[in-house]
Design a protein around this nucleic acid. Sequence first.
DNA 1: CTGTGTGAATTGCTTCACAGCT
DNA 2: AGCTGTGAAGCAATTCACACAG
Lengths: 252, 252
Amino acid sequence: MTTPPETGPDAPVAKRPVPEATVTRLAVYLRLLGEFAESGAETVSSEELATASGVNSAKLRKDLSYLGSYGTRGVGYDVASLQHQLERVLGLDHHQSVALVGVGNLGHALAGYAGFAGRGFPVSAMFDVDPDLVGIRINGILVEHVRDVETVCRDRGVTIGMVATPGPAAQGACDLLVRGGVASILNFAPVVLQVPPDVEVRKVDLAVELQVLAFHVARRHVAGESETAGALRPTPAGDTNGTANGSVVSPR
Amino acid sequence: MTTPPETGPDAPVAKRPVPEATVTRLAVYLRLLGEFAESGAETVSSEELATASGVNSAKLRKDLSYLGSYGTRGVGYDVASLQHQLERVLGLDHHQSVALVGVGNLGHALAGYAGFAGRGFPVSAMFDVDPDLVGIRINGILVEHVRDVETVCRDRGVTIGMVATPGPAAQGACDLLVRGGVASILNFAPVVLQVPPDVEVRKVDLAVELQVLAFHVARRHVAGESETAGALRPTPAGDTNGTANGSVVSPR
DNA sequence: CTGTGTGAATTGCTTCACAGCT
DNA sequence: AGCTGTGAAGCAATTCACACAG
């Protein structure tokens, strides 16, 4: 209740909407900024960063404009300061702690994936039902029994849950995470999770990804059969919701 | 004989546009159709299939309309026949064979992921540079040296390549696949691959997924500060979340 | 002059609502 | 009646193009 009018009188920090599609790309820009920083660059132009990210510069500038004006006209963006802004907007300045439910084939790989810890998402709890797995350590993290998901998540302030169980167990795992206060879930199981409206779910479905690619293989067969491989369809740059679709070929 | 009620007045191959976003969902519908089939259903209505897929029925019908009219008014869709149509459109009636480059942490899991073979995407070749890996078998498949990617892909008619190498090696792996005639690539490495315009790339970036979720965690903190955590509102869950993200408490 | 920031135009996707088949 | 298929309306995201700051 008491809906805060929100529209401040003259709030210096305006809260723009920030389109969902933009958020996905901000994460990409951030990674590339890291590379620019490593190579010693002080500033980047929208053109440079855009090319490296596989988007066009107008889109990049519009994306960045949602965070405010952090560029310098005639010069570009200050790498370090832009990195900082992106981290702030993406919530990476808050501590995030990740829980993984399901330590089978895929879960095991996720547990050991260096990219997580290295990017600010340490896996701080892991769960499974298999007695052979409960009790072992992976990458130094103890695998606990699924029955403890709720309490452990609360105790350790888990903010993000990953579901990597077999399909049939996924909804149950999800429910436990939600009861443990986790409001953001990354789902690798091939099912559509049912969650309360305040819980955010993103799905990574590997079989679906392959099927989308298979579709393009088939398309190519039909199109390429008669057409001389010339017809360049409007670059499938569009990343639909869900997992990002790269594919962007430079504007040529 | 009787010209089918196709739209094609003189276009033998009626190539509807089929939006990119739709293709992604078709794969989801197909999986759920499989479940309906297993449970013995002969037909499904757009409403049933839509609910199970987490989308609304209008969107589902529009999606299916891109393949033609395969439903029966007043009844619904014949499960088996719709399955068949979806498989055809998604190119699953053609044989797909998948190659995996990079058998490290993640690659290993992908190699053993039952969901692939089970869904018509048998991994038929695997590659790595590590001498400790080259020569071993995973799930019965021999790991070969990366130097053979090109010839092996050609010989076995690989249609889809998966890149699961460390970032710095990804572009090289990609180039080899392309030279081997692979025109569809699923990229798990955190880099933007450069490819010729006729090659389709989809990217699965786990760190990006987590960052997008982190963004929503942060949003919640700002927006949810005033809201009490209780009140499980009658989830209009209707559809909202689908393949990708769930819902964001819409302020205002 | 260079490169950002942004209104305006455009494209593409989703939702609505209803005509038409069974 | 019940449910599909689809034009039309409504939104959201992308691209264009240019004013303006450094």
